[in-house]
């Protein structure tokens, strides 16, 4: 636990030992397209899609671990990621500026 870097800052900084922050606002990221069992806070409809980091929210205990009665540490950085609706739904009928913003934990994101 001593080895993990404390993630400083974020909109709501927490005092948990945390995994180092990898992404900054504006970075393009892809949501992992994976379907593990368990309590997952990454909705199915967004897996595999590419979006842009809107903000870093802080680091929070991993809910997938909390659901297994573990402490969820080191905490995972949490981001709000913005996706264009037209990228998410091929047949989206609205203007191309329409977006969907979703909170996604860092371990679900990879750089594109």
């Amino acid at each position: 636990m001593q080895k993990v870097a404390a993630a400083a800052g974020g909109q709501y900084p927490t005092r948990y030992p945390a995994v180092a922050v990898r992404f900054a606002p504006g970075d393009r990221v892809r949501v992992r397209d994976s379907a593990p069992l368990g309590h997952i806070r990454t909705p199915f409809y967004i897996r595999g899609h590419v979006g842009v980091i809107e903000r870093y929210c802080g680091a929070f205990p991993n809910p997938e671990e909390l659901a297994q009665m573990r402490d969820g540490l080191p905490a995972q950085p949490l981001y709000r990621v913005r996706f264009l609706q037209r990228d998410v739904w091929a047949d989206y009928p609205g203007p191309r500026e329409d977006t969907i913003d979703i909170e996604i934990f860092q371990h679900w994101l990879e750089r594109t």
């Binding site: 979703i102 909170e103 996604i104």
Partner: peptide, 15 residues
């Protein structure tokens, strides 16, 4: 209106 962007926020985690 079509010239107003809609931003949906899916509240999936701690916020």
């Amino acid at each position: 209106a079509d010239d107003v962007a809609i931003r949906v926020h899916d509240s999936t985690a701690d916020m």
